[in-house]
Amino acid sequence: MTIRIGVVTFPGSLDDQDALRAVSYAGAQAISLWHKDTDLNKVDVVILPGGFSYGDYLRCGAIAKLAPVMTEIITKANQGLPVLGICNGFQVLCESGLLPGVLTRNKGLHFTCRDEKLEVVNNSTLWTKDFETNEKIVIPIKNGEGCYQADKKTLDQLVGNNQIVFKYLDNPNGSLLDIAGITNEKGNVVGLMPHPEHAIDELTGPTNHGLRLFTSVIKNLVGISK
């Protein structure tokens, strides 16, 4: 069985090609989806890539959530479709209501581009089964609006339900609770600011740690996950 993983391209997406390549590299069939698509072309998994959809106008991800393709993604995600949002994709997931909270301007106002040390907090999501809990990994970040904020009740829920997936070891942007990535309660939707698609091979990235998000979801779907 070949897993079909779709990567959505919005106007202003930048990392859709790297995400498609990471999907192929991990052993799945990479399918390009377009923001105007109303059908998901029978994909088993959806990735919302990084970039600056619609120029980040209004708020990051706020216009992308209204794209025709998102209607089907939101419906299917609520039914259990595995969805990964990377950077701008994470922002789109928060704006869409698939994940709680919001990403705002980095505390120091700087656009930050560096290799980031992370701790894997939750390895039970569809996207993190190939990691160990408390494992330290390195994946690059590159964003201007990566500061995770939510009200206290939401933060308490994230902690109580073990919905924090990745934490920064050296918080680069003021994110509350050092949050780098979270999941929904079901564990099928994950969003993170770091870019796993840029860390799939040591030849072109700082590590190959990012590849394991893609292999996790693939193994889970073919039924060989732990």
């Binding site: 705002t104 301007r105 505390k107 120091g108 500061c147 009200d151 003021g174």
Partner: peptide
């Protein structure tokens, strides 16, 4: 909202 950090 008042509790939101506003670096700008």
């Amino acid at each position: 909202k008042s509790e939101i950090l506003d670096p700008q």
